[in-house]
Design a protein around this nucleic acid. Sequence first.
DNA 1: AAAAAAATCGTGCACGTGCACGATTTACAA
DNA 2: TTGTAAATCGTGCACGTGCACGATTTTTTT
Lengths: 358, 358
Amino acid sequence: MEKDEKKITIKDVARLAGLSKGTVDRVVHNRGEVSEESKRRVLEVIQQIGYKPNIYASLLASKKHYTLLCLIPKFCPGEYWELVYTGIGRAVERARNYNIGIDVISYDQFDRESFRRAARELLDRNPQAVLLAPIYRNDTLALTAELTSRNVPYVYIDSRLEGSGYLAYFGMPMYQSGYLAASLLTEQPDIREIANFRIDRGGAQPQDNPTLRRREGFMAYLKENFPEYRVYEDFIKPYDPEYNLRVLDSFFERHPDIRHIVTFNSRVHLISEYLEKRALKDRFVVGFDKLAGNLEGVRKGYIKFLITQRTETQVYRGITAIIEHMVFHTTPAEQDNFMSMDILTKYNVDYYSDIYEF
Amino acid sequence: MEKDEKKITIKDVARLAGLSKGTVDRVVHNRGEVSEESKRRVLEVIQQIGYKPNIYASLLASKKHYTLLCLIPKFCPGEYWELVYTGIGRAVERARNYNIGIDVISYDQFDRESFRRAARELLDRNPQAVLLAPIYRNDTLALTAELTSRNVPYVYIDSRLEGSGYLAYFGMPMYQSGYLAASLLTEQPDIREIANFRIDRGGAQPQDNPTLRRREGFMAYLKENFPEYRVYEDFIKPYDPEYNLRVLDSFFERHPDIRHIVTFNSRVHLISEYLEKRALKDRFVVGFDKLAGNLEGVRKGYIKFLITQRTETQVYRGITAIIEHMVFHTTPAEQDNFMSMDILTKYNVDYYSDIYEF
DNA sequence: AAAAAAATCGTGCACGTGCACGATTTACAA
DNA sequence: TTGTAAATCGTGCACGTGCACGATTTTTTT
C-alpha cells in the first residue's frame, strides 16, 4: 500500500543514456530527429529505471490547447438529453485543467438534415476529439469514417454503432433494462394484462431508437416466463396534456382491470401525472430515466420502480477517457462500458445522486 | 459552456497590488510577515481579477509530503471491511499525485484494547490527516479530540459520531436502508410472518453497531404499514456452517410457512447458501452489502433484493475530500454525505460496478 | 539620537518538462 | 579534399509557484 519511489526525471534518463534531455524528450514524444541508436538507448534506459514523465511539469510547460466537440440532440428542459448536457458541464472544468476546451454542437434529433448540418459544422471546426450520440446511422458512419481518416478519436455515448473505430462507448444495456423492468413488474402475482404507453411522434422517428431494444427485452422476459400475459399498447404525446387525458381515460375505460403499466421511453411522468390527476393510487408503474418529473412521480408513489442509469457519470467518464487518451496516451481498459441499472423507489430516491466531484 | 479566461498568475496580482510575488504568496498561504495594509490590497486584487493558483506549478514547486492514515477493522477475505480496504487501494495512486502517502492501521473490531492500541499507534505516527471508522465510541472521541487539538483533519466513513469536528462523513443512511428493505419485502401480498437471522458473536459486539439502526428502520416500516406482521428471530454464526445448518433446519421446521427472510448484517450469503443446499427456491430474501458471496446469491436467484452502497466510492470520496482540503484548502460542500442505496436483483447485478477510475 | 530589534518585503533559484534555436556531426556531391 | 545539405543533438529559456535568504523599513530600546 506504499511505494516511495525516488523521483526519476528526464535528466536521469539523459545521464544514463549519455545524451541530453532534449534528445530524450524527442524520443519520448516521437518527434523524430533522433538516430536509431540513440532512440534504442533511451528507450532501454526508460524501461530499465521506469521513467514516468511528471504530468505537472509537462502541463505547466506545454502551451498546447485542444478542442473537444460534443454532438448531441437539442432538448427542452426536463428532457433526457438535458442530463447529458449537464454531464458535459461537469466535465468542463476538469478538462480545462488539461488545456482542453469543450464545446457542444446540437441538432434536432427528429430531423436528419439537421444532424447532417451539425456533422458538417463539427468537421469544419477541426476538433482534436469528439463525443457523440449516433442518432442517424448512415450519417454517423460517414462522420466517423472521416474522423478516423483524420485520426481524431471519438467516443460514443447512449448507443453505439458496430465497427471498432471508436475509442470507447458508455451506455446502458437497453435490452437488459427492459428485461429488468419486466421482472420487477411481474413480481406481483396474478397479472394478466399490462399496459404500455408509447410516444406518438407523428412519424418523425429517429433511426435506431434505443427504446425499441428495451421493449424487446421486456417482451422476451414475458415470453420466457409468463407467455400468457397480454400487453396492450396506446400512444400519447409529449406536449399535449389534454390529448393524453383523453387517450388515457379512454384506455382505462376499455381496460378497467389493468393495474400494471410500463413505458420504455423517458416520459413516464406523463403517466404518473395522469394518475395523480385521477387519484388512481392502485396502479403499479415501472418506467425509465432520471428526469425530474419522473423522480417526482416516484416520490409521490405513483411510480413503483424507476430504472435509471447514471447519465452524468456516463458522459463524465466518456470525457475522462478522451482526456486520458490525449494527455497520457492511454486506451480505456474496456472499449464498451455498460453502466449499472439503478432501481429507484419511493424509499431510496431521495438518496440517489449521480455524479460526484472528483 | 466555454470560458477563455486569460491565465492570471501571481505576477499579475503582484503588479496590480504594487507588491512582489513573494508578498502575494505570503498572503495567499497565510504565512504572515505581511502588513495589514498589504494584505488588504492583495486580497482585494485577488478578488477583483479572480486569481486562482496554478495547481501544477504549485505541486511542481512544493516539496511537501503528507501522510494520511486510515484506521479500519481487520478483515477476512469476503468480509465487509475488505471493500473499504480496496477502496483505499484505489485512492492510493491518486493521492500520490498530490504527494500524499496513504497507510492503513487496522484493529480487531471485537477487541476494544486492539482499537486503543491502533489509535495510539496512529497518534505516534503523526499523520497529517486521518480516515476512520468509529467502532468504539469513547475511544474514538478521545482520539478525535486529540486530532482536533493537533489540528489534524479527519473523515468518518461507515458511521459517525455526533460533534462537528470532522471534516466530512461518508456513509449509508442505515435507518432508511432498513425501511427500504421492509418496503421491498412487503411488496408481496399476504405475508404474515418474517424471519430475521442475526449474527451470534458470542457476546463480542462492538459498540454502536450500525446494523441495529437498520433493524429499527425495518421495524418502523412494518409498524407503520403492516402492524399485524410478526418477525421471528434466530442467530447464526459467521464461520460455523454445520451449526447454521442445524439452526436453520430447526427454524424452518418450526415455521414451515415462513417464506420471507431478511438479514441486517452483511452475511446474507449464509442464508442463500443454506437455501441452495436445501434447494429451497420459493423463499423471498432481502439482504445487504456487496460481498462476493451475496452477489452470487443474487445471481442464482436465492436473494431477491440486495441493498448495497458503493463502499469503494464512499472511501474514495472520503480520501478525495481530504486531498482537496490539504491541497486546495477547500471544505467539502456537505459535511454529511449519504451514499445512494442501490437495489440489486438477478437481472441487474451483472452490470453493477462500484468505483470508476478517474 | 543612535543602536538594536522587529516587521515587512523583494530577489532569485528550484521544481521537471516542452520546445525553439543554434551547434555539431554526418552524409553526400563536386 | 572541400563545400553543402541533411541529420542529429545540446543548450537555455519559459511555464507559475514555493520558499529561503537577505535587503529594507519601521519600531523599540538605551
